[in-house]
């Protein structure tokens, strides 16, 4: 007993980190890291989730190349990715608007942040109803202005944009809070110096303020891109991928293929997930690369 305790004592600085890490690493390996590789393996089989797996090699991927629905999803993912980024300038705009010290401004800031706190299921319900073709506020407004009503969620042309608009609501709130925090840390002396040099308005924003907001912009980019590629909840709630699958994205199409009324196609679903994972890995690697540089620079 004495010898084990002295071994521990002598080596505890080497052993302690592993002791602290063990439960976290074990859980993370079992539920996150290993499943990624399992999914890659499953994507090479045909499997209904219960019976025997049948090896098909790259068959699922070959099928993807000819799948109209896959291209629709991919295209919609691209639209999501591009339009979702609007949350960043929008969030900056709101943050600039609210970055004052008048009375009650803190309550305003919290209330503007509200949409991010509530579930996307609720956001989806709220917006489905906002778009309601008969009595929705959007169409009442359009009709009041003399336009024809647009059944946004039933129209292939509009549906994806309608859902993205709903997603932009909470995402803008998120970016706003990031920028408010960033603005708080902007160096007031630099602002005053620039003011003496007659910089104001947009020039001031562009040349003096934005460079100092870089960390906030970076985080906003990361969370917005990841959020765009993860979009699932709103689509499931608002349209269930419809009309005729026109609002699907990869995340949703994968779920639909893997288990839905059309039968369980786990292998094919996994192949879609692998494609989505590959797209995301581009961003994740970029993020890790920047973190690595920051760590080395310390």
């Amino acid at each position: 007993m004495a010898s084990t305790s002295s071994t521990w004592r002598r080596n505890q600085q080497r052993l302690a980190p592993w002791l602290f890490l063990a439960p976290g690493i074990a859980m993370f390996l079992i539920y996150v890291i290993i499943p990624i590789f399992q999914s890659m393996a499953i994507s090479l089989y045909q499997w209904d989730g219960l019976g025997e797996k049948v090896w098909v090699g790259l068959g699922n991927y070959v099928e993807l190349f000819d799948d109209e629905a896959f291209y629709t999803s991919l295209k919609n993912n691209l639209i999501w990715l591009v339009l979702y980024l609007l949350a960043i300038p929008a969030g900056l705009f709101v943050a600039l608007f609210l970055n004052q010290t008048v009375r009650g401004i803190r309550i305003y800031k919290s209330l503007f942040f509200f949409p991010f706190v509530i579930s996307q299921v609720v956001v989806g319900l709220v917006f489905s109803w906002f778009y309601d073709p008969n009595n929705g506020l959007l169409n009442l407004g359009l009709m009041a202005l003399g336009f024809d009503p647009i059944p946004v969620l039933a129209d292939e042309k509009w549906v994806t944009y309608g859902i993205i608009a709903a997603g932009l609501w909470p995402q803008t709130a998120y970016c706003m809070i990031l920028y408010l925090t960033g603005l708080n840390a902007v160096d007031p002396e630099q602002i005053e110096a620039a003011r003496l040099d007659n910089a104001r308005g947009l020039r001031m924003l562009w040349y003096v303020v934005l460079p100092q907001l870089k960390p906030a912009t970076f985080i906003a980019m990361v969370v917005t891109v990841i959020g765009a590629l993860r979009s699932f909840d709103l689509i499931s709630i608002m349209t269930d991928g419809g009309p005729w699958g026109s609002s699907r994205v990869l995340a949703f199409y994968m779920y639909e293929q893997a288990f839905s009324e059309y039968g369980f196609r786990m292998g094919y679903g996994a192949a879609i997930a692998v494609v989505l994972f590959a797209i995301m890995m581009v961003y994740i690697s970029g993020f890790l690369w920047k973190m690595y540089r920051d760590e080395k620079g310390r």
């Binding site: 539920y31 989730g49 990869l250 779920y255 679903g269 995301m280």
Partner: peptide
């Protein structure tokens, strides 16, 4: 950061 779908099955 990984997509949930790659873990789902």
């Amino acid at each position: 950061f990984v997509p949930f779908q790659i873990l789902m099955v």
